[in-house]
Amino acid sequence: MLEWVLPAILTIITASTPLVFAAVGEVLVEKSGVLNLGIEGMMVVGAIAAFAVGVTFESATLAIISGAVAGAFLAFIFGLLTLNLLANQVATGLALTIFGLGLSSLIGHSYVGKTFPGLPKLEITLLTDIPFLGPIIFGQDILVYLSILSVFGVSWFLYRTRWGLIVRAIGENHDAAYSIGYSVKFVRMIVILIGGALAGLGGSYLSLAYTPFWVENMTAGRGWIALALVVFASWKPGRALLGAYLFGGITIIQMHAQGFDVQIPAQVMSSLPYLATIFVLVLISRDSSRTLLNAPACLGKNFQPSS
C-alpha cells in the first residue's frame, strides 16, 4: 500500500504547485477589483522565459527570476491597458492569452528538444530520511516551498496588514477609496504585477520541474483552471491552496488510472480535470447570494476618477 501512496503524493504536489501560484496570484489581483483573464498567457510566457534562461545560463535561480519577471512584464501590459487606457478587462485578458501563447511559441521555437536538469531538491540529513513524511515535507524543491509561502504571504498581507486592507477596500468600492485619498491606479498596478509574477512562477515550475523540457502551449488550460479555482475558493487564499491540491489530485488519479490499464478510453480520463472544473463551478455558483457576498464588489469594473 505505502509503496505507491508516497510517489502518488509526491506527484500530486508537482501537479498542484503551478495551480497554487497562479490561483493565489489571481486571488490577490481580484481582491483589488481587477479581473485578469490572461493567467494562461502569463504562465506560458513565464514557462518559456524560465526555460530559455535556465538552459542558456544553466542557473536555476536566474531561470526562476526570469519566469517571474516575464509574467510581471505581461501583467504590466494588462495594467497599462486596463488602468490607464480603460480597456475592457475581459477583452484585454483574452488578448494577453493569445499574445502570450504566440510569443512563447515564437521564443520556444529554438528551444524544442533541449532539456533542463530540473530543480535541486532540499536535502537535510536525518529529516529527509524520515520514512514517508521526510521526503514529502523536507524533500521538495524551492518552488514548492515558495508556492506554499506565497499562500501564507498573500493571506497575511490581505488580512493582517494596512496595505492589504487598502487593497480590499479598493476592490469593494474604488470610488470611496479614491475619495479618501488612495491612488486606485497605483495600488492596482502593483497588485497586477505581483499577480503576474506569481503566474510566471507557476509557469516556470511547469517547464523547470514538472516536465524538464519545452512543449508548445504546455500550460494546457491550467491558467483557466486557476481562474475557476479563485471562484471555488470564494476569493480566500487558503481555500485556493486546498482547491489547487484537489485538482492536482484529480490530474494524478487520471494519469494513474491510465497506467493501471483501466478499460476506459484515455481521452475520457484526460477530460476529467476540465469536467471537474465545470462541475465545481456549477456547485459554487448555484448559490448566487454566496458568490455575491464573497466576490469583490468592483470586480471587473474599470475605475474612472471624477465620474
Partner: peptide, 18 residues
Amino acid sequence: PNAVTGVFQGMLLFFLLA
C-alpha cells in the same frame, strides 16, 4: 516559425484596445 502569426494577432488586439 509561423508562431509569428499569434504574436501579430495578440499585438493587433492590444493596439486596438489601446
